[in-house]
Design a protein around this nucleic acid. Structure first.
Length: 303
DNA sequence: CAGGCGTGGAA
DNA sequence: TTTCCAAGCCT
């Protein structure tokens, strides 16, 4: 064996993070439906709606069913919103089903049935915020923009800033931080956005990060600092689900999804013992458009 | 801008 | 058991 060359003793330490992460992503990324070539902008859009606050493994079966039934925005726009809410099943946050249906109508009526390309146009669609607009423009159409989600914020906080957790989200600051890391090439930038999210999802996870398996551990600022504990402001704690208005809303929605007939007040009464909370939950669903009063009495999913 | 909005799996 | 967390958005 020959002696190790000096260059091997001092490998490049500042290879752009994008180059390293993209190579890792191309070798290690999970195979997910929306990453298949030719998946289509509509499929990407539906997947992004479903993935808002809902884990990947729970989304996949609903997504496949959804796209088999409604392969284009016009297909979804042609059915009542109630069908979207039923197909949403128990993914949670059923307002998203309503918003996705509304977006399909907008796309069909205002954009010729084609999912818009531009971030600003996408932002005008119901239920699409800054993350989803950028995700669609980048992952469906290959445009070069920073895409920042909760995974991205955590990866940047650790690998770049050196903190265990990100500070509270700041749109301007977060986008600038990601923009500074974005590779110049459009395709590489899109892959980098996905790779950063993937790293946060499977390696640089919230609770027990797998730092030994991390492709950028050698340049990670958090690791270099000795993994300091987070000392910033705490995230607001969510009220427990049991006994919450959310739980009552969920029970009523499950009942509405279970039938095409009006659900009567008597049936709703059996779902939850506390009348005040029941009334509050039902009123909220009516305001949100997830339930409507049936002409003959009782309540239905919206048309 | 803080709070509300479902559901279920994992630690 | 309880708590945390999961590709956010809207008001």
């Amino acid at each position: 064996m020959t002696a190790t060359a000096p260059t091997d003793l001092h490998p490049p330490r500042h290879q752009p993070v994008g180059v390293v992460l993209n190579a890792w992503f191309r070798a290690e990324a999970r195979s997910l439906p929306w990453r298949r070539s030719g998946f289509g902008a509509w499929g990407i859009l539906v997947s992004e709606f479903m993935l808002q606050q809902t884990p990947v493994n729970r989304v996949i079966p609903r997504l496949e069913e959804w796209l088999a039934r409604w392969p284009t925005p016009a297909d979804l726009a042609a059915v009542p919103a109630s069908e979207a809410v039923r197909a949403w099943a128990s993914l949670g946050y059923p307002r998203r089903a309503l918003w996705l249906h509304a977006a399909a109508v907008q796309i069909t009526e205002q954009h010729g049935g084609v999912v818009p390309h531009d971030v600003d146009t996408l932002l005008e669609l119901t239920g699409i915020g800054d993350y989803t607009a950028r995700a669609v423009a980048v992952f469906a159409y290959g445009h070069r923009h920073p895409v920042v989600d909760t995974n991205t914020r955590r990866v940047i906080a650790r690998a770049i800033t050196g903190q265990a957790e990100p500070a509270p989200p700041s749109r301007t600051r977060d986008l600038e931080a990601m923009n500074a890391l974005l590779p110049p090439d459009d395709t590489e930038a899109a892959v980098f956005n996905a790779a950063t999210m993937e790293l946060g999802a499977v390696v640089c996870t919230a609770r027990t990060p797998h730092c030994d398996d991390c492709p950028i551990r050698n340049t990670c600022a958090w690791r270099a600092a000795g993994y300091p504990v987070y000392d910033g402001p705490r995230k607001t704690v969510q009220k427990s689900f049991a006994g919450s208005d959310r739980q009552v809303r969920g029970l009523i929605m499950a009942e509405l999804r279970s039938t095409h007939r009006p659900v009567t007040d008597a049936e709703i009464t059996t779902l939850w013992p506390d009348a005040t909370q029941r009334d509050r939950a039902l009123a909220g669903l009516l305001v949100d458009g997830l339930a409507v009063a049936a002409p003959s009495g009782g309540y239905l999913l919206p048309d």
